[in-house]
Write a protein that binds this DNA or RNA. Structure first.
Lengths: 356, 356
DNA sequence: CTGAAAGCGCTTACAG
DNA sequence: CTGAAAGCGCTTACAG
């Protein structure tokens, strides 16, 4: 087909004709720009009321000929780790929306050094930018940056976790508490009568991330509600060499002979899985988080039973999209964006859509 | 920021200058149109080799001023049933890509009357269209339509299930066999030592859809591989009044006292769940398919334990996107698009993303 | 306050 | 075979 018909689509020109004004005036009314007489405004608004005008956003972007710069502030990480996928999502969005003349630049901070976050924020502020995607660190630290952003009226999106009281434009994350709750249900199915081990990743003595804490909280709540009598043991493992201290783990397992299942509330579960494999320990049901190559390998080998995915790619892509919708397309944006709590097993993992 | 900088973006005009020809000639080379001298072609190609030209597809769509019509051929259904979500995805894509001047129109066939499929196909062929999204019925029937499409070189996408030998441009579906396999693993977790009931939906004596058959096949394969001794009972229930024949079900349950779990390989599991609720039968673990309001209700009440989702919205949206990518954006399209095999439980269902 | 004109990057008749 | 010109729907100086 592909005819030259305008298929009933309404253009600014049509509105202008109906209202008896020029396209310039219609444009001014449409965008609330100044210099329109009351009379003209009313004429145009009358027409707009009668018709369903859908602006052609691409024509608009083309004509306005603007250039948008987005910054990201993410934790430092090694290739192949969780944040790699977030970045892939961000970069995909950049190229997908390339025709809107956007570009994205990523800054990093050291998650174990709060000064580092502010230093990176400082650097960003030397430059001009139109929006930011932030993985928040502690509230007190994060707020110092976000307050400045609010002052400058630069929108920001939180990613991976949320701090509602800092009023981001929006956020993309998983509900950690509910995720832990769900995890508990699943672990109970795997090993209904067993004592439970929790493998914590700690940095200088305490759990580093809010996510880990909240997931554990949800997990314990499920146990309290449904399995009060389940005995739970906790092992704290330092972040460095996580899962490599076989002696500590040997001791932990030796001390708890009735513990046949466990969970690790972060993406490093492969550390435990690989330990189990080395020890040929097949009588232990293990759960963890995130679709990472080393985790998937454990899943396929049967040394991890379930993983919970949290769609990092989608979080990255979605965050860029939020900024575009808000700044360029002037659309309402969703303030809360939760990714699904998705169970991955050896049987379904091949169909997990990383990129959606 | 929003400067007027052209941020290094290469335009046709730039290529034309570098090659010493006009933009018209560059356009001809870029699209393999006729009327370019060997000499000009080479000059342009030289330039193209050196640079990474990314055409602005929106400018292109705007200028070409074409109109595309897509048809869908879906089974008839009632509001709120599975296909409603597919349609929502399709309609969302239509409005999202409105600026490309596309429109979508849905035709229906009666899935229990194969003549009906061809009649609808006939109707479509009276009109002009640029692409089709088809939910295939039996091969012999579907092929009659798709052969004509191949002749006319009109691309078509299969949705919900695939028939590879008819060579669709692409398809969107869940892998039914693997999905059944996964379901078996999950059902075994719910009730490790129980006999199993399969609730089939039959139309005049046999299972209507390929999907049901393939899921059951995958399910049985898992049982064969991992739980040879599990006893399986099958109950055939007519499609009309599915799950309403309480007497038949009473008899089935009475006959199999050791059957404490079961599965229904289609979206009508609420029929069984609601029966269990009426009978206050809490000692039966039930699984089924699809995120439908009545199924979700059963899940929340505990009369269905697990649902498997198959992202109908995404299938609909994705199918339209495939046609756009192929016809308008001239991109490579994925030939195989499997949706994830996603487990829904009372604990995670609120985060299931219908629209992604 | 208003409209005509130029331009965004691309495509498409059209004249030569 | 080639280039200049007009146009897609919109925005933005600019002249009045």
């Amino acid at each position: 087909m592909q005819e030259e018909i305008q298929q009933g689509r309404i253009r600014i020109k049509d509105i202008a004709e109906k209202a008896g004004v020029s396209v310039g005036t219609v444009d001014r009314v449409l965008h609330g720009r100044p210099n329109v007489s009351e009379k003209s405004r009313i004429k145009v608004e009358e027409v707009l009321k009668r018709i369903d005008y859908q602006p052609n956003m691409y024509a608009s972007a083309l004509a306005s000929n603007k250039y948008y710069k987005f910054f990201c502030l993410f934790p430092q990480h090694k290739p192949g780790e969780y944040w790699t996928e977030v970045e892939k999502g961000v970069m995909r969005a950049q190229s997908k929306f390339n025709d809107f003349n956007i570009s994205v630049e990523i800054f990093y901070y050291d998650p174990f050094d709060s000064q580092s976050f502010l230093k990176a924020a400082e650097q960003m502020q030397q430059r001009e930018f139109d929006g930011v995607i932030i993985n928040p660190t502690k509230v007190e630290v994060t707020s110092q940056f976000t307050e400045q952003l609010h002052e400058k009226e630069i929108p920001f999106v939180f990613i991976d976790s949320n701090i509602p009281e800092l009023h981001p434009l929006s956020f993309w994350a998983q509900n950690s508490q509910k995720s832990g709750y769900f995890a508990a249900r699943m672990l109970k199915l795997l090993a209904p009568n067993s004592e439970v081990g929790i493998f914590r990743q700690v940095v200088s003595g305490h759990v580093g991330s809010n996510q880990q804490l909240e997931r554990e909280e949800g997990f314990l709540q499920y146990m309290k509600e449904h399995h009060k009598d389940t005995i739970i043991h906790t092992l704290e493992l330092p972040a460095k060499n996580f899962g490599r201290q076989f002696d500590i783990m040997d001791k932990f397992f030796a001390e708890h002979k009735n513990m046949h299942c466990g969970i690790c509330f972060n993406s490093k579960v492969f550390g435990i899985g690989e330990y189990l494999e080395k020890r040929h320990k097949k009588d232990f049901r293990l759960m963890g988080y995130d679709h990472l190559e080393r985790n998937n390998e454990c899943l396929r080998n049967g040394f991890v039973d379930f993983l919970i995915a949290q769609h990092p790619w989608k979080q990255g892509y979605g965050s860029v999209q939020i900024l575009i919708d808000y700044l360029i397309l002037k659309k309402e944006v969703m303030r809360y964006n939760y990714v699904p709590i998705e169970l991955l097993t050896a049987e379904n993992i091949e169909f997990y859509n990383k990129t959606n």
